[in-house]
Structures are given as structure tokens and as C-alpha cells.
């Protein structure tokens, strides 16, 4: 494989590291958190910028409203908590005070998906991408590793408009180049291939690369596309690849309903109908377990991607 794991790190630490940098470089960036500072890794930002940090307590609705208000006066608020509490719990606050009002708020959501682990389904949201992408004007980003999460966090500070940035809890392979430029809305072609396109986001990107490696041994040439920005979707990159390979597997740590796969399916249905298989949770809640156990049980790993590739190739 042309990518190497530079050492496992959690994506949330990528967020925290970028917040430290933004604290120093962007005087208008402010941070909010609802009693989960340690989990969001923003201790250094708070230490260095105490006046630019707002601890809201366990009150996410108020946090979203405060963030919307802080934009009035030119602040760039990064409102952070677990993905579950950053979306479903406060959907209407985001909808009215942030999205409809066009506020420059960055909703930064950690512990998304099954990999939150042992806390179980009450905290493991698998519907957040769907909720957020449904909001007109909302940009939805789900980076794949520490480096990309850090780069994405820095990039959204310079983008004007509401953003949902989704990342996670566990330590995962950190393989994207440390100096990779993060372009919102631009897919990253990780590996070229000719037989199938694997389109992955978030924690499924590294397993997609492993799957591509394993498939190579079986004589299948897989192209791997990393979609970090689910909305707006890089349709051009998707179409270019799929027109070449003729079939696609999408992979994400999210319900198949409302996720990346559905966005891809819509694009293809309209512009280039193509066989597609979905590696995603199947309209289910999660449960307690380790991150790895859960990803295996719910079919979100390289093996599931490889199986899906075989299925989709047979449908060509």
C-alpha cells in the first residue's frame, strides 16, 4: 500500500490540535463546549484563550443559540460536544438559529457513530449526517484521520457559513499526509483502479485502503476515493471514477439511510445509473462493546467492503 500509518491517533485530537492553532492565529475564533472539554481535547485552547471559551454546562440548546448570537459581532464560534447531542438533541436550534439564519457557526461533533463504544446506543448516533445534510446551506464534513481532521478544522475557520464537522473517539490509523491541503467539497483520490470504485468517508477510509490491497491479491483493481465533504458533494470526482470502473461501493459509519451512500446513489441515479452496494449500518441502533467489536458486528470493516465489492462486480 502506498499509505502508511504514521501511528494511531484519535480524530478528536486532530480537532483539539487545530483549535490550539486557531486560538493563536484567528482572534475571532471562539469555542463553546457543553461539559465535555476533555473529550473534545480543547484544553490548550481554553488555557491560552480563557476569555474566548464558553462553558455552557449540560445545555446544548443554549449552546447552539449562544453560538448563533456570537456570530453577531463577528466571532467565529466552534460549538463542540458529542455528535448525538450536537445534532438530534438540538435539531431545531440548529435549523432556525443557525442554518436558516445563515450563521457562521461550526458545529464540531465528536464520538460520532458506533466507535464511541461501551456507552452504547444512547450515545452512538448513526443518523447525524442525514439530519445535517438535509439542512439547506449546511456543509457536512467527515474527515478520516487525525491529520485530515486537523486540516478540516483549520479550513472551516476560513470558510463563511454553517458547517457540521464530524469526527470520533477511537485511535485510528493516521495516514493522510500531514501537509495535505484540505479543500472543502473536493474528493481525494487515494488510489487509482479500474474494476470498482470504493467511496469511503470517516473511519471507513483506512479499511477501504486495506480492502483495496486485499482485492489486488485477488486480481481486482479498486479505485479508492475519500469523500470527506459529504455536502457539497464532489459529483465530478465521483462520476469520473464511476464512469471508468462501472460499479461502486460506498462505506461509512452511519445508517445507510441519509448517509454518504444515499448522496452518491442520487448523483448516479440522475447522471450515470450504476450498480452500488452500501457498507453502512442497516437501519439499526448500536449497542455496547469495544469500537472494534462493534465495527465487526455491524459489518463496517475491510472484510465487509471486500464482500460488497464482489457483490457489486457481479451486478455489472
Amino acid at each position: 500500500m502506498q499509505y502508511t500509518d504514521q501511528g494511531k491517533k484519535d480524530t478528536r485530537s486532530g480537532y483539539g490540535a487545530a483549535m490550539t492553532e486557531l486560538g493563536r492565529s484567528h482572534p475571532n475564533v471562539v469555542a463553546l463546549c457543553a461539559d465535555l472539554v476533555g473529550s473534545l481535547k480543547i484544553e490548550t485552547f481554553i488555557e491560552e484563550n480563557p476569555k474566548r471559551f464558553f462553558q455552557t454546562g449540560i445545555a446544548e440548546a443554549n449552546m447552539m443559540g449562544l453560538a448563533a448570537g456570537l456570530t453577531i459581532g463577528g466571532k467565529i464560534p466552534f460549538a463542540s460536544t458529542f455528535a448525538n447531542f450536537a445534532t438530534g438533541r438540538v435539531y431545531d436550534q440548529i435549523r432556525q438559529s443557525i442554518a436558516y439564519s445563515g450563521k457562521n457557526v461550526k458545529i464540531c461533533a465528536s464520538h460520532a457513530g458506533l466507535t464511541l463504544g461501551e456507552d452504547g446506543a444512547t450515545h452512538q448516533i448513526l443518523e447525524d449526517i442525514g439530519m445535517m445534510k438535509m439542512l439547506p446551506g449546511m456543509t457536512v464534513i467527515n474527515p478520516c484521520d487525525f491529520n485530515q481532521t486537523k486540516a478540516a478544522t483549520l479550513a472551516i475557520a476560513d470558510y463563511e457559513g454553517p458547517v457540521y464537522l464530524r469526527f470520533g473517539r477511537p485511535k485510528v490509523a493516521n495516514f493522510t499526509p500531514v501537509d495535505q491541503k484540505f479543500e472543502i467539497g473536493k474528493a481525494v483520490l487515494l488510489q487509482e483502479g479500474t474494476d470498482v470504485t470504493i467511496i469511503a468517508t470517516g473511519h471507513l477510509v483506512w479499511p477501504a485502503l486495506i480492502a483495496a490491497d486485499n482485492l489486488k491479491e485477488k486480481g481486482i483493481s479498486a479505485e479508492v476515493l475519500n469523500i470527506h465533504t459529504i455536502k457539497p458533494l464532489d459529483e465530478e470526482a465521483v462520476l469520473k471514477s464511476v464512469k471508468k470502473t462501472g460499479c461502486v461501493v460506498t462505506a461509512e459509519e452511519h445508517n445507510f439511510m441519509g448517509g454518504l451512500g444515499e448522496s452518491i446513489a442520487r448523483t448516479l441515479a440522475i447522471q450515470h445509473p450504476t450498480p452500488q452496494e452500501f457498507v453502512a449500518t442497516q437501519d439499526t441502533f448500536g449497542e455496547s462493546g469495544t469500537a472494534e467489536e462493534l465495527m465487526d458486528k455491524y459489518g463496517l470493516n475491510n472484510k465487509a467492503i471486500e464482500d460488497a465489492v464482489v457483490r457489486v462486480k457481479n451486478r455489472k
Binding site: N62, M64, G65, A68, G69, I72, G73
Partner: peptide, 10 residues
Amino acid sequence: MSVAIGAALA
């Protein structure tokens, strides 16, 4: 009220 408080903080 949340929005107004946010604006007051700004």
C-alpha cells in the same frame, strides 16, 4: 434569549 446572550458575549 440564547442568541441575545451570545450577542451580548460578543
